[in-house]
Amino acid sequence: MIGVGKIKQYSNVLDKPLTKGKQEVSLSAFAFLFSELVQYNQTQVDNIGELERRLEDAGYAVGARVLELLCHRDKGNRRETRLLNILSFVHSTVWKVLFGKVADSLEKGTEHEDEYMISEKELLVNKFISIPKDMGTFNCGAFVAGIVRGVLDGAGFPAVVTAHFVPMEGQQRPRTTILIKFAEEVLRREARLG
């Protein structure tokens, strides 16, 4: 029998050594899979808000695990405890691992103290997506917003995270902004830590 016994058997998934994170699959494979995630969820909802919420839920499950994985593999089980550090971790480390590059920008909201924005000219999940007119402002970036919320929540920075299209001059496709609005307790704790 070809190949029998080449996989080392582990009685428990926790005994199995973690991958180095260098393995890749084709972008098409991910795009097809993500397309099915969106289409399946379309059959489960009545409106756009509900669809975005379900995509965000799926993303949250990814984000929570990404945080565990990266903290264990790259940071010796340490987690960021300061607001700007965790934002920088998401914008650079998490983005680079998941999407192969650092996010285009990380900015503080001008109108509200508790808001931050991560912007991306072309979000990976939106690469092969075209939104029909009847679906209005629907943004598949809700999945990525969920990932961000999962990471932040797991690190102890609860926040409301949403994805929005922002039109750009001279560009056919709008960029996507992930808007992060932190819970009041996070800002209070940050002020206390000075």
């Binding site: 991958t19 994170g21 393995q23 890749e24 699959v25 084709s26 972008l27 098409s28 494979a29 991910f30 899979l33 993500f34 099915e36 995630l37 399946y40 969820n41 489960q44 379900r54 839920d57 799926a58 993303g59 499950a61 990814v62 695990r65 990404v66 994985l69 691992v97 998941l98 999407f99 192969g100 990976l124």
Partner: peptide
């Protein structure tokens, strides 16, 4: 072919698939 196609981190793919299965088990 694989060397010439656009690629993504397998962990994103793996975890996204896991999220799909988890959603199906809930639904």
């Amino acid at each position: 072919i694989f060397a010439n196609v656009e690629r993504v981190n397998a962990e994103l793919f793996t975890l996204t698939y896991g999220a799909i299965v988890r959603q199906l088990l809930t639904d």
